[in-house]
C-alpha cells in the first residue's frame, strides 16, 4: 500500500514540476524510490539504525581528525594503518559505535554516518561548504521537515546531504549541477546513501535554464560564480507565498552584484553575514612563577641576602615548586579566516 501511494505521489510530482523527458537523473531517483521501499529499516543518512548491515556506508574513526568512509560488503576487507578490517566478521551485525580490533591489534571505532561526518570525509570534486556555514544556511533558510529546496550547484554534495537530513521525510531537494560527471557522481552517492527518494539531480545550467521547477520552493540556495544571473530563475522557483534565499560567494564584488539584483527583483530583508568558527585546543599549560625575592621580614631574608648566588640559582634549581599549571583552551595558531559571505533575502508573496 505504501508503495502505491508513493508512486501516486511521485507521479504527481512529475506532473507538477514540469518534468522533461530528457531528465535522466530524475528517472534514476524515481526508480530508486521503488528500490528503497523493499528493504525497510536500513541505515541511511536520514534515519538512525542500531546495527551495521551489508550495503551500509560507515565511518571508520581511526583517531583525531582521521576518519574514512567505507561501504560494507560481505567478504570485503579494508586496510587501515592499524591493519585490515574484515567486513563480514568485524562489521556486519555489529552495533554502530563499537570498537573494532584490526588485524594488527590496533582498534578503531565504527560510526553511523551523519551529514557532518560525511562533510569531513567526502571525496572532493569541488571546493565544499563546511558545517559552520551549513548550520547557518539551514537555520536562516528556515529549513525543516517538509521544506522544498532548490540548490545549485550540487558540487560535491556536502550541503545537499545536510539539507536532505533536515527536510526528510516529506521534503524534497531539487539540485542543479551543470557539470555532467559531477551530477552523475552526486546522483550515485544519493542512491548509495539511501536518500535518492528525497532528491532530484538535474544536469543543466541554472543561469540559463533555471532549476527545472516552478512555484514549488520554500528556499533557494546558490553557490555559483555568478549568482546574480540565477536570481530571476530562483524567483520563479519559489512558491506563491514566497520563501527564503541564500547566496554564498567568496568575493565582496559578487555580493555587491547579487544584492543589487536581489533589490531589483523585489526581494526583501536582504542581509549579508559571515561566520567563522574557532576550534579550541584543550590542554594543561605550565607557567613558571617569577621570583620576587624574599618577603619583607620573612625568615629567609637573612639567609638570602648572605648568599646572592643561591638566589640566582633558585628558579632553575627548584622548578616544580615555582610554577603553576592550569587547564586552558587555546585557539589554533592558524584557522580558516574566510570561507564566503552569506547573503540572505526573503522572496515576498507574489
Amino acid at each position: 500500500m505504501a508503495g502505491v501511494s508513493t508512486l501516486a505521489m511521485w507521479l504527481l510530482c512529475l506532473l507538477r514540476s514540469g518534468y522533461s523527458a530528457s531528465d535522466e537523473y530524475f528517472i534514476f531517483s524515481w526508480l530508486s524510490v521503488w528500490l528503497e521501499l523493499i528493504p525497510k529499516n536500513l541505515m541511511s543518512f536520514v534515519e538512525y539504525s542500531e546495527f551495521i548491515k551489508e550495503g551500509d556506508v560507515v565511518i571508520i574513526f581511526l583517531g583525531h581528525e582521521s576518519m574514512m568512509p567505507i561501504k560494507v560488503e560481505a567478504g570485503a576487507q579494508t586496510q587501515t594503518r592499524y591493519g585490515a578490517i574484515r567486513h563480514s566478521s568485524d562489521l556486519i551485525g555489529r552495533r554502530f559505535g563499537s570498537k573494532v580490533t584490526c588485524s594488527k591489534g590496533g582498534w578503531v571505532y565504527v560510526l553511523h554516518p551523519t551529514p557532518e561526518l560525511w562533510t569531513v570525509n567526502l571525496p572532493h570534486r569541488t571546493q565544499i561548504l563546511y558545517s559552520t556555514d551549513i548550520a547557518n544556511i539551514t537555520l536562516m533558510l528556515d529549513l525543516k521537515p517538509g521544506s522544498v529546496v532548490c540548490e545549485s550547484g550540487t558540487g560535491s554534495g556536502s550541503l545537499s546531504h545536510a539539507i536532505l537530513r533536515t527536510i526528510a521525510p516529506s521534503g524534497h531537494l531539487h539540485t542543479v549541477e551543470f557539470h555532467a560527471q559531477r551530477a552523475e557522481k552526486a546522483a550515485q552517492e544519493f542512491r548509495d546513501h539511501k536518500v535518492a527518494h528525497l532528491v532530484t539531480v538535474r544536469n543543466q545550467d541554472v543561469c540559463k535554464e533555471g532549476f527545472g521547477v516552478v512555484g514549488v520552493a520554500d528556499a533557494v540556495f546558490l553557490d555559483i560564480p555568478s549568482p546574480w544571473e540565477a536570481i530571476v530563475h530562483a524567483k520563479k522557483a519559489f512558491k506563491r507565498k514566497g520563501g527564503r534565499l541564500c547566496s554564498f560567494s567568496p568575493c565582496i564584488e559578487q555580493v555587491q552584484r547579487t544584492c543589487e539584483t536581489l533589490l531589483e527583483q523585489g526581494f526583501g530583508e536582504i542581509c549579508t553575514l559571515e561566520v567563522l568558527q574557532r576550534v579550541h585546543d584543550v590542554r594543561s599549560v605550565t607557567m613558571p612563577l617569577v621570583y620576587l625575592g624574599p618577603e619583607d621580614g620573612g625568615p629567609e631574608s637573612a639567609k638570602m641576602t648572605t648568599d646572592p648566588a643561591a638566589e640566582e640559582a633558585r628558579p632553575v634549581a627548584n622548578p616544580g615548586y615555582q610554577s603553576v599549571t592550569c587547564r586552558t583552551a587555546t585557539p589554533p595558531r592558524e584557522m580558516a579566516g574566510h570561507t564566503g559571505y552569506l547573503t540572505f533575502a526573503t522572496k515576498p508573496r507574489g
Binding site: V255, C259, I270, E274, L276, Q277, A329
Partner: peptide, 15 residues
C-alpha cells in the same frame, strides 16, 4: 570521541 570545543564569530555587512 571527536570532542571539540568551539565558538564562533558572527559579522554582519552593510552592502
Amino acid at each position: 570521541i571527536s570532542l571539540r570545543l568551539t565558538d564562533s564569530w558572527l559579522r554582519h555587512y552593510q552592502v
